[in-house]
Amino acid sequence: MRFDLPRNVILPVDAVDVRLDPGPHPFALDNAEAIAENWQREISANPALFDGTVVLLSQLAWRDNSLVGRCHAVNYSTFMLWRKRRENSGAEHAYAHAMLVAGDNALVAIRMGPHTVNAGRVYFAAGSFEPIDFRDGLVDVDFNMIREVREETGLDLSIAERGHRYHALSTNSGTVIFRRYHEPAPADEIARRISAFVAAETDPEIEGPVIIRHAADLPDGLSAHMKPLIEWHFAGKG
């Protein structure tokens, strides 16, 4: 098994068994010099970048409605080079989306801030898995979702009603694992809370909230993977 899962189709996922390998990722070992050179170019263009720790997959498969895989901690600089050399790299990226569903069934996404790598892009509040998101070596997807939403929007989804299962969409650019989180307030009220949080932040990661009210309500800057997720939600799937 390396990467063995259907692409470009939304998959039901009852369990995520992705484990953190303590060893280095082969991509990091094989490209150390190129990683350092590329990072210098990246921070010259955007000094706000931080070389923290994220994870890259070395294996991922879908079996019996479960995602099973292995990942390794890497520096963000390694991830940045991988984004440019992902084809045949032996590495892939997975990330999680808390699909925030308001009481009026609208979706509440966010637009990334101008100093970020994905400046201006619209998707659900999210971030790459980090070592903190693992419990005894096993990824805790909901912990990641709740943590990232809190950090970016100020919302606490820890007691929100959750969809009964995950779903996943795997494309050539990565695999998104997502789950509905229901907030009883209408979308406009949720957006007001997020905007107030952003206004109070010294260095906010996001520009602000984006409300999506129906399947054809596709905002400028929408990330490519979001369209099928939006259509899936408003079709009443899951």
Results as ranks from 00 to 15, higher is better:
Glu130Phe: 00
Gly127Cys: 04
Phe129Gln: 08
Arg63Gln: 15
Val74Ser: 05
Ala102Glu: 11
Pro131Ala: 11
Tyr76Trp: 08
Ala94Gly: 03
Val74Cys: 04
Ala119Phe: 02
Gly127Met: 04
Ser77Met: 00
His97Lys: 04
Ile132Pro: 00
Gly127Leu: 00
Phe79Arg: 15
Ala96Trp: 01
Asn75Lys: 12
Ala45Val: 01
Leu49Ser: 05
Phe129Cys: 08
Asp51Leu: 07
Arg41Phe: 06
Ala91Gly: 08
Leu56Val: 11
Gly103Asn: 09
Ser58Ala: 12
Val108Asp: 10
Ala126Ser: 15
Leu67Ala: 05
Thr116Pro: 01
Gly113Asp: 09
Ala125Met: 02
Ser66His: 15
Val117Trp: 01
Arg63His: 15
Arg70Lys: 10
Ile132Gly: 10
Glu130Lys: 04
Asp64Tyr: 14
Ala61Thr: 06
Leu60Gly: 07
Ala48Leu: 13
Ser89Pro: 10
Asn118Trp: 15
Ala45Trp: 03
Arg85Leu: 13
Glu42Ser: 03
Leu81Asn: 01
Glu87His: 13
Leu49Phe: 09
Cys71Met: 11
Trp62Ser: 03
Leu60Arg: 01
Arg41Ala: 08
Pro114Leu: 09
Ile43Asp: 03
Arg41Lys: 07
Ile35Cys: 11
Ala126Val: 02
Arg41Val: 04
Thr53Cys: 11
Arg86Ser: 10
Asn75Asp: 14
Asn38Cys: 03
Asp133Ser: 08
Phe134Tyr: 05
Tyr123Val: 07
Asn46Ala: 13
Ser128Cys: 07
Val68Arg: 07
Thr53Gly: 05
Asn75Cys: 09
Asn118Phe: 15
Ala36Gln: 15
Ser89Cys: 13
Ala91Val: 03
Ala102Asp: 10
Ser58Trp: 06
Lys84Ile: 10
Ser44Trp: 08
Gly113Gln: 08
Met112Lys: 10
Val101Leu: 06
Gln40Ala: 13
His97Thr: 06
Arg83Ile: 08
Ala48Arg: 07
Phe50His: 12
Gly120Leu: 02
Ala36Leu: 15
Val54Lys: 06
Tyr95His: 05
Arg111Lys: 13
Phe129Asp: 08
Arg86Ile: 06
Ala48Trp: 06
Arg121Met: 12
His97Asn: 13
Ile110His: 01
Ser44Pro: 02
Ala109Phe: 11
Leu49Ile: 05
Leu56Phe: 06
Leu67Asn: 03
Asp104Phe: 02
Asp64Gly: 12
Val55Glu: 11
Ala61Lys: 05
Glu37His: 03
Ser66Phe: 09
Ala125Val: 01
Tyr76Thr: 02
His93Leu: 14
Arg121His: 08
Val68Ile: 15
Ala45Leu: 07
Ala119Asp: 07
Thr78Tyr: 11
His115Ile: 09
Ser44Tyr: 13
His115Gly: 02
Leu49Trp: 04
Val117His: 05
Arg83Gly: 15
Phe79Gly: 14
Asn88Ile: 09
Arg135Cys: 09
Ala109Gln: 10
Ser128Val: 01
Arg70Leu: 14
